[in-house]
């Protein structure tokens, strides 16, 4: 067992984990933060995307011990209390999900992607969001929601 400290959604957690525990399983099974989803456990679907020190990462491809001391933001930490993040509001408004299972990953990934500042056009946003799969086919709604926020139309 290794003792690690994770700052998740501005709360400090000290936990004992074996080195083989992924960050994803540490969040879901140990910290009970099940908003972060497991869709493939192989870095292929993006459902487990979280923000680590502000950068989007696949939590299934990170071991928890590798993130000792890191600041993690999961989907549970995106809203400001009861006030939803503009992207969360835009997802609801644009019906950017059906089953909702890929949604936390899409939202965390989009926040990370926008912060990277590389995407200028809709096509570039689509390309840079393509690591996040959606099986319901809500693709157009997801990109519409992201574009609305990117272009500053995010509703307060």
């Amino acid at each position: 067992m290794t003792t690690i400290t994770l700052n998740v959604n501005k709360q400090t957690h000290t936990l004992e984990v074996l080195p083989w525990v992924s960050l994803l399983d540490a969040l879901r099974d140990r910290l009970k933060l099940t908003g972060t989803k497991k869709g493939c456990d192989h870095g292929q679907c993006g459902a487990c995307t979280v923000l680590c020190d502000g950068t989007r990462i696949l939590s299934c491809l990170s071991l928890a011990v590798m993130k000792n001391g890191s600041e993690i933001t999961t989907v549970e930490g995106i809203a400001d209390g009861d006030a939803l993040h503009p992207l969360q509001k835009a997802f609801i408004e644009h019906d950017a999900f059906q089953c909702g299972y890929c949604t936390p990953g899409q939202i965390c990934s989009a926040i990370g992607m926008l912060a990277e500042g590389k995407a200028r056009t809709r096509d570039e946003v689509k390309e840079l969001m393509s690591g996040n799969l959606c099986r319901c086919g809500a693709n157009t709604g997801i990109i519409d929601a992201i574009m609305e926020v990117k272009e500053g139309g995010g509703r307060e």
């Binding site: 879901r28 933060l33 908003g35 497991k38 999961t74 809203a79 969360q88 909702g100 936390p104």
Partner: peptide, 21 residues
């Protein structure tokens, strides 16, 4: 009408079968 469970889904509060503590 926007999905009534929308807030639960965008905040990670919606619980799926493997997520009950």
């Amino acid at each position: 009408v926007s999905r009534l469970e929308g807030k639960l889904k965008v905040t990670g509060a919606a619980k799926y079968a493997a997520e009950y503590d």
